[in-house]
Design a protein around this nucleic acid. Structure first.
Lengths: 206, 206
DNA sequence: TGTACATCAGTGAACGCGCGTTCACTGATGTAC
DNA sequence: TGTACATCAGTGAACGCGCGTTCACTGATGTAC
């Protein structure tokens, strides 16, 4: 874990490469970063990254995996086991979702717009599943506040929430130039959508 | 408009380049296509495209613009001026949205995931605005079926619908390997979301 | 504590490749008279 | 109708560039005895 001096050995190259990739993705999008440039900005020869990653895609997948892990943490914290009540926690969850997309555009695009075949990579898929599991858990808790009769399936609710949040994030809350203009904040838009949706579900006291 | 023979002059190179770009985008995503390859697959020297496009981005923008135009037509046809009633037409509109994303993944990704700064390009922005205008018009018609008291703003409704449809399209209905698995069809998911949302709005007879 | 040695994580030079772009050019087409 | 000429849309060779990747190598580190 030494960094100073930087003699022949870097000491922390793997992390440095991931950090560099993150910067580059932030600047040019997930397809715009190159292995060679990541090496250069880590101050290392172009052959060095091969000691840590088979190829460019493996590095990108690693970034996406960390993205999902961070995302899971952010969402879990926001959900906070549904305290003080499912609806309040749900609203926090939505804000946290957008906040992540906005503050970590590089991670978000590596996770959702990099063209990586998430389903083919077990580690990546698991990391993604764990993030989704938080939305799923929250949806279950929310559905449970409804009268047992006529409860919608929690899986459907979770997919609705996910795609609504993702749609708003990628159209209106992305951190780059692809963002569309909106006459309100993305957070307000999502919150309104969630309120209307929950009322439509018949969740009490919305 | 001659095509046969293909002597010294191609006769229709601009269109051929756009078609080639579309194929390449479909294969490798909007960032994966190159000017040179488009020229090659149009059967023309690498310098030829410069007679028709300033650079790669201008070609990409042209593809995206055509995408928005086609999209506008598809949505307009589906909406059919709200016949036979706003709700039925609205449902058709949603299906048409997903159908377009599914059938034309190359166009869809050029339009929404190419990293083009749509706002900076007037032609592109106008084309995008025209597509959005269809959603907006439909939202207005829908809102108009509600009692005047407590009508939600049509603009908000249109943004909700757009982002919900876009979220489902880009997570679950895309035509490439980035697609997530879903225990139902994307169309069913969107339709359910719209029904719940409309009920939440208080649209009568949902 | 010292030494020999295995292992690890870098180097740097080299390669082939495809891309974007420019250039002087040339064949085909359209038009004025 | 024919001819001269301007214009247009291509050619193909060339360039510099950065990338991905391989290779034999070497400096640093850790460990067995």
């Amino acid at each position: 874990m030494r960094h100073r001096g930087r003699g022949y050995h870097h000491g922390n190259l793997k992390e440095a490469l991931i950090a560099a990739a993150l910067d580059l993705i932030g600047e040019k999008g997930p397809t715009g970063f190159t292995f060679a440039e990541a090496a250069r900005s880590a101050g290392v020869s172009p052959a060095a990254p091969y000691r840590h990653f088979r190829d460019r895609d493996e590095l990108l997948a690693d970034v996406a995996k960390r993205g999902f892990e961070t995302f899971t943490n952010v969402l879990t914290t926001a959900w906070d086991e549904g305290r003080p009540d499912a609806q309040k926690a749900f609203e926090r969850l939505g804000r946290a979702y957008l906040g992540f997309a906005r503050k970590e555009p590089a991670l978000y695009s590596a996770m959702f717009e990099s063209g990586l075949a998430v389903a083919e990579n077990p580690e990546l898929r698991d990391a993604g599943d764990r993030a989704y599991a938080v939305l799923r858990e929250a949806s279950e808790a929310l559905v449970a506040t409804m009268p047992a009769k006529g409860r919608p399936p929690a899986s459907m609710v979770s997919f609705h929430v996910w795609s609504q949040a993702h749609g708003i994030a990628s159209l209106f809350a992305r951190g780059d130039e692809g963002r569309r203009k909106l006459p309100m904040s993305a957070e307000e838009l999502l919150e309104a959508a969630m309120l209307i949706y929950l009322r439509g579900l018949g969740v009490p006291d919305v």
